[in-house]
Design a protein around this nucleic acid. Structure first.
Ligand SMILES: [Mn+2]
Ligand SMILES: [Mn+2]
Ligand SMILES: [Mn+2]
Ligand SMILES: [Mn+2]
Lengths: 221, 221
DNA sequence: AATATTTTTTAGATTAACCTAAAAATTTAA
DNA sequence: TTAAATTTTTAGGTTAATCTAAAAAATATT
């Protein structure tokens, strides 16, 4: 069954929303991420249900069917592999690749995706620390914590980010926060929940709660 | 001004037809290459003229404007660079890359194209011997001859093919005809215009006129 | 429980890209 | 130079994806 770019993007968005909750996804939530109107979403959900890619009852919200899940994961796989390619091979920075990958994720060729995977050395995560589904669509579960939830005096390692936006990633770069960085949490300020933290043993700096919420870490000690 | 995949493909097709002639391109010729109907072409030509990418008067045929030429060349550049990538880096055969490049040529990022060009070592030609326009859209003119026009007892070098179809390229591969091959023309048969030729000093074989017409060569001696 | 608010769906239009069939213009042939 | 054949355009529709405005359903508040 033929699939359009638009349909692929809807499935991807429903998948993304489903990762954060076990509930059905609302029409409005999809509309917001798709940057479109609720009425358009209703039309599309009916069509996706028709094609067997989602389960949808009007007024009840939507969730992916196994077939839809498989498609969504294949798009996520392509998106993240292309991001690795753009950073590792083309020399882009991590804040420059998302938009280009949004286009490349729709290129249709299983052969190409698998050759690309091999060429990149079968990476497990993309430049933002997000896990890459394998050929069978299995997504390794990486259970990281948000930096905003870590207690003072802990040491942790930066494993990923919860946002792809260029402004956010550029800010991290300015703060010398990149994947793998060691973070020593010196103090958490009650007033604004900002964090005083040493990055790779450098002089400690302040990081806002807003930023900390979007940083994923593994606790080392 | 925004451009759609479809508009890009029309400009590319008009460009391709314009390379073979200095006359205006007919609606029917465009329709055939676009695999669509003449009526649809008329609609699109009006629209492309509106956008300033072609010069078109009804019943008079069409040709690219300088702006349209520039767009067409940028798509050709992307198509051919991606083909080099697919063969040189991904390990595809030359008969497997055209369809994938048809998709990749529409990816929009000047930054990516130029980084890809550099990564590939600024190739001058694609895997089929076709010249690659540079960043400024300048297409090096490679004046090759068709093998079908070469006289007997000449020696030449295979520089390119005049067709991208998989069946044709696979046949060449079977005959050990690849880019750079040395061809010693032993005899041309009057009856069917088939050519008796030695490839890289191997035992001579017969090549049909139909095949020879689509092989581009440089005469060595 | 009744009412107000919010969410979602329906109804009716719009736009891009395509189609078929018929009309008009151009080219070829008698 | 007319008539016939071919090419191209116009006219009128279709489909996918979108929109706005209004109606209907679900949820929240008095
Ligand atoms: Mn991304
Ligand atoms: Mn990413
Ligand atoms: Mn090609
Ligand atoms: Mn080529």
């Amino acid at each position: 069954m033929a699939i359009s770019f638009t349909e692929e993007n809807y499935l991807k968005v429903i998948h993304r929303l489903s990762e954060a909750t076990s509930e059905d996804i609302s029409t409005n939530a999809v509309a917001e991420l798709m940057q479109t109107k609720a009425a358009s979403v209703t039309d599309m959900l009916r069509k996706l249900a028709e094609k067997g890619w989602v389960n949808y009852q009007k007024y009840q919200g939507v969730r992916l069917s196994p077939a839809g899940e498989k498609i969504a994961l294949s798009i996520v796989r392509k998106h993240r592999l292309w991001e690795v390619f753009l950073v590792d091979k083309m020399g882009f920075n991590w804040d420059e690749v998302h938009e280009i990958a949004e286009q490349l994720e729709h290129i249709e060729s299983d052969d190409l995706v698998n050759k690309l995977d091999e060429y990149l050395g079968f990476p497990k995560t993309d430049p933002h620390g997000d896990p890459i589904p394998n050929k069978e669509g299995v997504l390794p579960e990486l259970a990281y914590s948000h930096l905003s939830e870590i207690k003072a005096n802990k040491t942790c390692k930066l494993m990923g980010v919860a946002q792809d936006s260029a402004v956010f990633l550029q800010l991290l770069t300015k703060l010398h926060l990149s994947l793998g960085a060691k973070l020593d949490i010196k103090e958490i300020n009650e007033f604004d929940r900002s964090i005083f933290v040493s990055i790779n043993d450098a002089e400690p700096i302040f990081i806002s709660h807003e930023v900390a919420k979007n940083i994923l870490v593994k606790i080392l000690a």
